[in-house]
């Protein structure tokens, strides 16, 4: 299933559809759009707004299909968020539906009920969606786990590394940005090197474009980046295990890396 999703997300059209799935706003918006379009209530301005949305969507998709960031390789590369930037246009129809319910009934308890429903819907969306998306990013789930593990690894590396702060010969790669900072850490989560504050860089080894050798490897046990077994013991020294909130990571140092 993961392979199917991975394949789908590398195709422009399904990728673009994934970007439209900003539930529940988008779902509500599409219902309203279809309803108003089918019943002939779409005004000229609504058509114009929809045209803006559709043209932007099409241009993004065509760019991924035709240009396809082709300089990156043979395959198309993209993310749902490339299309997600258009979602606020959709939400305008969702907002219209809420405004319509708000002013649907005239007077008395019906008005109160309609407005209470709208307020409840907005409150539910705000709390459930934000609680579901923003709060876990800070307090639990994948990112904080990585955050904890990477913070620990960064402390170990900063104590261990004794080499220069910059690459002797900076190199440029068109496919990806690489600064000349050292140490270079290859990791499941490239941001680990950022935590070394101005001395390092997290390189995305999976892209295969990094022009510098890694100084350290920081691998999450049982995850996609690479397996522990593939780390060549002739090239790397095992430094130890680092624990996140729920995951286990292994830290390796390249034998040629200057260290204390």
């Amino acid at each position: 299933m993961d392979a199917l999703f991975a394949w789908l997300f590398r195709r422009p059209v399904p990728l673009s559809l994934a970007g439209a799935h900003f539930l529940p706003f988008a779902l509500l918006a599409w219902v309203v759009i279809l309803g108003r379009a089918v019943t002939g209530r779409f005004s000229r301005r609504e058509w114009a707004l929809f045209a803006v949305f559709a043209v932007c969507y099409a241009l993004e998709t065509v760019q991924l299909m035709a240009a396809g960031f082709g300089f990156l390789g043979d395959d198309t590369y993209g993310l749902p968020r490339y299309f997600g930037v258009l979602a606020p246009i959709l939400w305008i129809w969702a907002a219209w539906s809420l405004a319509s319910v708000w002013s649907a009934a005239s007077g008395g308890w019906r008005t109160f009920l309609c407005r209470a429903a709208v307020v409840a819907a907005i409150a539910w969306i705000a709390i459930s969606q934000n609680y579901g998306q923003v709060e876990p990013a800070y307090s639990r789930g994948a990112i904080p786990d990585v955050h904890v593990a990477c913070s620990k690894a960064a402390r170990i590396i900063s104590r261990d590394y004794a080499g220069p702060e910059r690459q002797e010969k900076p190199r440029r790669v068109l496919q990806e940005y690489y600064s000349s900072r050292r140490p270079v850490v290859f990791s499941d989560f490239g941001a680990v090197a950022w935590m070394l504050r101005g001395q390092s860089e997290g390189a995305q080894q999976s892209s295969g474009y990094c022009p510098y050798p890694d100084d350290y490897l920081f691998i999450r046990v049982g995850s996609g980046y690479g397996t522990i077994e593939t780390v060549d013991a002739r090239q790397y020294d095992y430094m130890g295990t680092v624990k996140g909130l729920g995951t286990e990571w292994r830290l390796f140092r390249r034998k040629t890396t200057p260290h204390r």
Binding site: R81, G84, I122
Partner: peptide, 11 residues
């Protein structure tokens, strides 16, 4: 309402 939805959207 559009402004409210924009502000409360988490993505």
């Amino acid at each position: 309402f559009a402004a409210i939805l924009y502000v409360i959207c988490p993505q």
